[in-house]
Write a protein that binds this DNA or RNA. Structure first.
Lengths: 109, 109
DNA sequence: AGCCCATCTCAGCAGGAACTGATACGATCC
DNA sequence: GGATCGTATCAGTTCCTGCTGAGATGGGCT
């Protein structure tokens, strides 16, 4: 197959570099199965670490590591349980998730 | 801060593992600055490899490598120029891009 | 106080992905 | 035909990232 329009190949070598650093960083955070699984789990409401570790079949410290990265990205929030504060419950930070999806939309429209 | 509702921490350890393999793979493809830059560039229409390499400040073979991965993911299509078939022009595969954004939306709502 | 529990953090290692350099391919021009 | 151009592919190196194990932290129970 061949492109149709331009009669002569006029190269454009002065195109400015698009700023995609934030979008790529966002995608990189979602690009791991464990982190993606965590976000999917949290769509149905808050969960504690051990619940997510069991659902994903991963070790707790591994899940905790990924949660730390999601926290640094601002996509989730942690809060201790009201009755037994040993349990740490995580929930999605909805505005940040919406903003993240917007950034990805700026790549894929 | 503490979560409010549950009086006793009743753990749910039987949550099924969500299927996020495709969404995570899609995000991983977008998670590189060069690939994200390519997709951003192609939003304004088709471009050949050397144009994108110049705009991104990357070497041609490196850009070509990333294009191959985007091609394998189905996000872009390649076609040779009508007049001078040495130039390979790339354009976005819109349906696949829309599907990719849908998969990411299934994680972020 | 001591002990247990859920979670966090970190150094170390192992696997994979990205960049490089060289080479090969397909196409045009002479 | 040979030379050159734009691009693709591949092995090698480097760099990054995820998993592991052990220890630390903070909270609850007796």
């Amino acid at each position: 197959m061949r492109t149709e329009l331009p009669v002569l190949p006029e190269l454009r070598l002065d195109i400015p570099r698009p700023d995609v650093a934030e979008a790529a960083a966002t995608a990189a955070v979602l690009g791991d199965p464990v982190r993606a699984g965590i976000l999917a789990l949290l769509r149905s409401g808050p969960h504690c670490v051990c619940e997510m570790a069991a659902a994903l079949g991963e070790r707790q410290n591994n899940v905790s590591n990924h949660l730390a990265r999601l926290r640094r990205a601002g996509l989730v929030r942690a809060s201790r349980h009201m009755v037994d504060a040993r349990w740490v419950y995580y929930e999605r930070a909805e505005p940040a998730c919406a903003a993240a999806l917007d950034r990805l939309g700026s790549l894929l429209r």
